[in-house]
Computed example of a mutant assay.
Amino acid sequence: MRMLVVQGDITTRHADVIVNAAGSSLLGGGGVDGAVHRRGGPAVRAECRALRASAYPDGLPVGQAVATTGGELRARWVVHTVGPVYSPDDDRSGLLASCYRESLRVADGLGARSVAFPAISTGVRGWPLAEAAEIAVRALRATATEVADVCFVTFTPEAFAAFTTVVTGDENIAAGLAAHPEEHWRRLFAAVDELTPADRVVTWEAPENQFPYPVYSERFWQVVRLLAELDVIVPFDWGAWSRASPLHPDGRRLAAAPVADAARLATAYVRGERFCEGTLETGLANGALDAIFDRLRGWFAEGGAR
């Protein structure tokens, strides 16, 4: 799936599908919703009224999506989805991710190959831009789809910058990983293969009058050092990514994720050890480190390193 970020008016975008950040009523409103209904014209309004009279008498639930004609828009269809209101006390990231996944599902059912998204829930619904962008990109990249082109059409310079940072971040990290020679990567994988069951056992020592600390084997530390040398430890917005990504903490879906996420998860554990001793032990125990090694090995086998 190719991703592009532009700043502008989504109602003027050429695409098979334009996604509308709709209200539950499906009858139009402010912001993107109002603009889509005004530009789409009577045909969009008529199909929305028909949906309310049939399938959604109580309105479209948050996180779900439904399609109508594109009417007078430059898109063949409009996919309407209702984003959640942001709450600092209630994690609603799953609902926001569902807006993107469900929109793709509906677009696939229509046979669409290009979809334009707004920055859902970042307007009056108050979602912080950095986190909303992470959720959007992670949800789309983790969804199996026939859609080939996704464009985020952002209205403000701030939204454009936030979504561009996330979309290009994966590409920049992958380029940094690929810049290392093959022999460096082979050293890492050889070191991983040399780990014994004893190297995965962490002991804790507690000197007199001191807090206990973990003791890792020299072979294991060699793997950690090689990770750090290979640009796997990368800067990124840890808070937004960890809340948005289904990969944290154990990386169970890492095999299907961009290789950049293997770098992010590695950073979470390697850097995390500096601030909370025993973090690497957790990564050994829950399988996260093995998932990281497997994803990097798969990327390497596919020709990721130059």
Rank of each mutant, 00 (worst) to 15 (best):
157 P>T: 04
3 M>P: 00
72 E>I: 00
220 F>G: 04
75 A>K: 02
205 E>W: 01
207 P>G: 09
172 N>C: 11
242 S>L: 07
82 V>P: 01
10 I>S: 05
106 V>E: 08
47 E>Q: 15
170 D>E: 14
31 G>H: 04
93 S>W: 01
188 L>C: 02
253 R>A: 14
114 S>Q: 11
103 S>I: 07
193 D>L: 05
205 E>V: 07
133 A>M: 12
218 E>V: 11
262 A>G: 12
200 R>A: 13
289 L>W: 04
230 L>H: 04
59 G>S: 13
82 V>T: 07
113 R>W: 04
48 C>S: 15
89 D>F: 11
79 V>H: 01
226 L>N: 04
45 R>T: 13
240 A>Y: 07
183 E>V: 10
210 Q>D: 10
123 G>N: 06
158 E>K: 06
54 S>E: 14
69 T>R: 04
105 R>W: 00
1 M>E: 01
29 G>L: 05
280 L>I: 06
270 V>A: 04
33 D>Y: 12
202 V>T: 14
14 H>T: 13
288 A>K: 00
154 T>M: 15
168 T>Y: 01
28 G>C: 08
201 V>D: 13
228 A>E: 12
108 D>K: 00
152 F>A: 07
117 F>V: 11
60 L>T: 08
287 G>P: 05
14 H>W: 05
254 L>R: 01
183 E>L: 11
93 S>K: 04
262 A>S: 12
52 R>V: 15
254 L>W: 05
141 R>K: 14
32 V>K: 03
19 V>R: 07
209 N>S: 14
140 L>K: 00
109 G>M: 05
99 C>A: 10
54 S>L: 07
237 D>A: 09
257 A>Y: 07
115 V>W: 07
196 T>G: 01
262 A>V: 10
273 E>G: 03
217 S>M: 05
272 G>K: 06
306 R>I: 13
278 G>P: 10
67 A>G: 10
142 A>N: 13
214 P>H: 12
163 F>P: 01
219 R>Y: 03
63 G>I: 06
218 E>H: 03
58 D>M: 02
204 W>T: 11
229 E>S: 11
147 V>L: 08
162 A>L: 07
262 A>P: 09
278 G>D: 12
110 L>K: 02
216 Y>R: 08
118 P>N: 10
221 W>I: 02
278 G>S: 13
124 V>S: 12
160 F>G: 01
119 A>N: 01
201 V>R: 15
26 L>Q: 09
84 P>T: 10
123 G>F: 02
226 L>E: 10
236 F>Y: 15
